[in-house]
């Protein structure tokens, strides 16, 4: 029995392959303009990594998720990414009760129950201020190679520079101005990370953040955001080894369940 979960988000496509309940392979690729080929390519890569023939026809069942889930032609079923994240995290960390997932354009906070069921959730509205996109914009103007590379730099700051703007576009200007005023780069970078964490904390203020808390999504690779999330929520966040694939993993688990039900 070979099933796959395919998660196509704003920035990356992720595929996880399960065979008889075990993770056989996974892949993560950036999404270009052509969403379908990104999903296809990522799935074939995952198959190759699993040592299988790289054709999506080999799958017995595929669940797609992520904002482009409807466009994945080889999927048998689509499921929203929040459900998939919850399922994937529950599989990896059964004691998890709270998830912050920060992706390219969305951020979500999810409260989960003992069975991995969703108790409550919130997701950002029309605002990129608490998302990976915000960090990418900032990495660019602060001349850091990538969003991930900013994290360690942020950890070196003793006095994060406050970034007050609520809007990504305004915040960009704000950082440019602060840079021009000669503020220390690492303090600025730390400020940016703190701002992201605080936006998400406000969004999730009405949910119960209970341990074990887990941080997933592309942004979870960033140690700076993790640190400030922990300060905001006053709790430790676990980050899975591959924080980007929990959605795809959840989708694959749902695919497996669907197949067993048949």
């Amino acid at each position: 029995m070979l099933v796959a979960g395919v998660d196509v988000g704003a920035a990356t496509a992720k595929t996880v392959i399960l065979g008889d309940g075990r993770i056989l392979g996974h892949a993560v690729n950036p999404v270009g303009y052509d969403i379908k080929s990104a999903a296809d390519e990522t799935s074939r890569e995952a198959l190759r990594k699993a040592g299988l023939s790289p054709s999506t026809k080999n799958f017995d069942y595929v669940v797609s998720t992520g904002y482009a889930r409807e466009s994945i032609e080889f999927a048998d079923k689509t499921v929203s990414e929040i459900i998939c994240h919850a399922r994937g995290v529950h599989y990896l960390i059964p004691s998890a009760r709270f998830i912050i997932d920060m992706g390219g354009q969305d951020s979500k906070a999810i409260e989960i129950g003992e069975e991995g069921n969703i108790v409550d959730f919130v997701m950002n509205d029309k605002c990129a201020a608490g998302t990976g996109r915000f960090l990418e914009v900032m990495a660019h103007i602060l001349h850091v190679a990538s969003m991930d590379a900013m994290g360690p730099l942020a950890l070196g700051s003793k006095e994060p520079c406050p970034i007050s703007s609520t809007c990504t576009v305004f915040a960009e200007t704000e950082v440019v101005v602060l840079r021009a005023r000669g503020k220390d780069r690492k303090d600025l970078i730390a400020g940016v990370h703190k701002a992201v964490a605080s936006r998400v904390a406000v969004m999730a203020a009405n949910l119960a953040c209970r341990p074990v808390a887990v941080f997933t999504g592309g942004v979870a690779k960033n140690a700076g955001v993790k640190k400030y999330l922990e300060e905001e929520f006053k709790t430790e966040f676990l980050v899975p080894e591959e924080p980007q694939i929990t959605g795809a993993l959840g989708a694959a688990l749902i695919a497996q369940a669907q197949l067993l039900r048949k």
């Binding site: 904002y67 499921v79 929203s80 990414e81 929040i82 459900i83 969305d106 069921n117 969703i118 108790v119 959730f121 997701m123 029309k126």
Partner: peptide
Amino acid sequence: RAYSADSLRTKVETFAEMLRAK
């Protein structure tokens, strides 16, 4: 124009799944 069906779908589907599970 700003709040399209596509932009709202994830939230509504997740909520529906929550209710079904319950």
